[in-house]
Amino acid sequence: MTYQLNPETSLGIVKLKVSNIEDSIAFYERVIGLKTTRRTTVTASLSANGNDTLLELEQINTPYTGSHRGHTGLYHFALLVPSRKALGNILKHLIHSKIAIGQADHLVSEALYLSDPDHNGIEIYRDRPRSEWNYDQNDQVRMASDPIDWEGILAEAEQVPFQGLDEGTVMGHIHLHVSDLDKAYLYYCKLLGFSLESDWSANGALFVGAGRYHHHIGLNIWNGRGGKPLPEHATGIDYYTIRLANPDELATVVERLRNEGYAVQPNEAGYITKDPFGIGIQFAI
């Protein structure tokens, strides 16, 4: 029987390497509306509710200045807000702040896109109710990249000054540049136990999830097939976190990885490893 992750699987903390901690904190507080809960001279933790960390930042000394094209790594991390009103609030704030944003209606969700000072991609989105999701003849969720309903979303916004990102915001998904979709499928679906929810391989992407979520992880080859990991001193993703349902599943995933020859090391949260593309993954409960 094919191994599948518990439906309660979710994502947690994303850690980014940045070039200037002060600039990054200012951006994530003022533009995104997160709250800094802990910081040192070179690190910071940020939260939407003041308690649960969504994002960790670490300043890199003498960061790599070469091109990120042709490398594996972060495409974007995605902050999931709990309502269309919350999405309207942040959209109104971004417009008033004159921030350049992209957008897409993915049928299952409505999404905004922007980048931080180090060009790390960010998505802020809200999900439509699952009852509104549609599936094709292969039981895969239908997604698209249609224009959003700007006026409808803005009409949901509160007529008060921006108070920060909604406290119910969570890390919804992560989208990664990889070098090979077949290798990505074998690792994320066959080994880790995610299910393939939408096969966009004709367009260079796969979307995998647990519990029939439209995707916890997006995987694309848009940065080029055969890409190599960035140098350790490059800005970008250090690791992202997969939150498993219970200790038994954590132990099972660690054992499965080690049996396939992946180095998995314990850390304060649980365990940490790297996927076949050099991207760090933290496993926690």
Rank of each mutant, 00 (worst) to 15 (best):
G209C: 09
R30G: 07
L16N: 09
S179Q: 04
G50H: 12
P266L: 13
A202G: 11
E249Y: 02
A205E: 08
V253N: 03
H175V: 02
A263H: 06
K17H: 10
N49L: 05
G66H: 10
G168Y: 08
H119D: 13
A86R: 08
E232A: 15
D23N: 15
I281F: 05
L250W: 07
K98V: 12
L87P: 01
G280S: 08
N20G: 11
A184N: 00
L91D: 01
L46V: 06
G12K: 01
D105I: 01
V81L: 11
Y240N: 03
E56M: 14
I221F: 01
Y213S: 09
G88R: 04
L230K: 10
W200Y: 15
T169L: 09
V31T: 15
P147L: 06
K274M: 09
Y188A: 12
Q103C: 04
T241I: 13
H76R: 06
I237S: 02
T235L: 04
L5K: 07
V14H: 01
S179K: 09
Y3E: 03
A86P: 10
V14I: 05
T72Y: 07
K92F: 11
N220W: 02
V31Y: 06
L91N: 03
Y188D: 11
I217V: 15
N220M: 04
T72E: 00
F277C: 12
G70Q: 12
